[in-house]
Structures are given as C-alpha cells and as structure tokens.
C-alpha cells in the first residue's frame, strides 16, 4: 500500500506537534484585523460607487449655485493626515525593538496630527457653502468625508487606548504588542482610504 503524501507529511511533523496556531505565520489577531479592514474597505467602496453613480446621473456637478469645492485647505489637511503615518509607523517599529518610550512619542504625534486633521475638517464643515440637504451633492460630500472622519476618530481612540495602557501597566514589550500593531494597521487603512476619498470627492 502506497503511503500517501499526507501520511508522510504528518509523520514528519510528529504527533507531539502543537496545533498550527503557535508561532506559524501571522498571528490570529493580525488575520482578524485584515478581514475587518477588508470589510471596511468594501463599505467605503460602496459609498464611493454610490457617489459616482449619483454624480454621473446628476450631470452638473456641483449643482447650480454651489461653487466648486475649495482645494487648498483640504490639500494641506490631507498632507497632515498622511504625515501622521510616519510617527505611527515609527511607534510600531519602536515597540518591535522594545522601545516603549519611542512608541509613546510616536502615538502622541500621530494622534495629534489626526486631531488636527479632524479640526480642519470641522472648520471646513462649518464654512461650507452647502448643507446636507443640498441636492445629492451635499449629502454625498458629508457622508463620504463624515464617515471617513468617524474612522479617523476611532483610530485616534485606539491609539489613545494603547497610549494609556502603556503608561499604566507594563503591557507592551518586544513580543507582545498586538494592540499597537492593530492600531497601526487601522491607521494606515484610514490614511489609504482618505487618499481615495479625497481624490474622488475633491479632485475628480
């Protein structure tokens, strides 16, 4: 009887082998984050497709009487948000080296930049020359940017939670810092989505 490859495979690993979780490949948390982010990406994709659909149907964009969106201010704001990716990445790298102080600095910087971005958005909202009720233009604008803003806010909260935890207990170290990794993954996702939302809403 031919011994199948499966059998050889198993024999080589041996019966004492632990379940596959331990140490092999990425952690379960990483995978969960990936799928959560994937689902969020689809959510934004839906928002964007809906935006494009309504915009194509509308023909004139923005509608009569509404000026083109102002570009300079949101452009600067975008740069601020994108910039925050650097300290976030720095924080992640720092904790991977076991440098908790470096991580804290990174998180503080990143969330500060995030807050500035949100402040900028708030300014933009309050000075907009149209409202939620302005045709579909207003509705889509505020929904797209608003949902992104909400995600930025969540990202900041995750960072702050990491920061606070890192002060109270000796939680994070070289090996165990999944929360920070997750915060970084989430933040990079929020950044990347903004590039697309910005391109679609402001530039297109």
């Amino acid at each position: 009887m031919a011994v199948s490859q499966a059998a050889v495979h198993d024999t080589a690993r041996g019966a004492s082998h632990q379940p596959e979780v331990a140490g092999q490949g990425r952690s379960i948390g990483w995978w969960a984050m990936i799928f959560m982010i994937a689902s969020e990406v689809i959510f934004f994709a839906n928002l964007i497709v809906a935006y494009l659909y309504l915009r194509v149907r509308a023909g004139q964009w923005p509608p009569e009487g509404v000026p083109e969106l102002e570009l300079l201010f949101p452009m600067v704001n975008t740069c601020i948000l994108l910039l925050s990716a650097i300290p976030m990445h720095g924080a992640h790298m720092a904790i991977r080296r076991g440098d908790r102080r470096g991580m804290q600095i990174g998180l503080v910087l990143a969330s500060a930049l995030g807050l500035i971005f949100l402040g900028g958005q708030a300014y933009e909202y309050t000075h907009a020359k149209f409202t939620l009720e302005t045709g579909v233009f207003g509705g889509t604008f505020f929904t797209l940017t608003g949902f992104h803003g909400a995600h930025v806010a969540v990202g900041i909260m995750i960072m702050l939670a990491c920061l606070i935890r890192s002060f109270f207990k000796q939680t994070f170290n070289k090996e165990h810092h999944f929360a920070v990794e997750a915060a970084a993954m989430y933040w990079h996702f929020v950044d990347a989505v903004w590039i697309i939302v910005f391109a679609v809403v402001y530039l297109l």
């Binding site: 995978w31 969960a32 799928f35």
Partner: peptide
C-alpha cells in the same frame, strides 16, 4: 462572527 470563523478555520486546525 464571520471573521471569527474564518480565522478559526485558517489558524486553529489540528495537525494534519
């Protein structure tokens, strides 16, 4: 729930 199931299947299978 679904993410949990996917990750469980990807990562928690017993040897073999």
């Amino acid at each position: 729930g679904s993410i949990n199931i996917i990750v469980t299947i990807l990562k928690m299978r017993c040897p073999g």
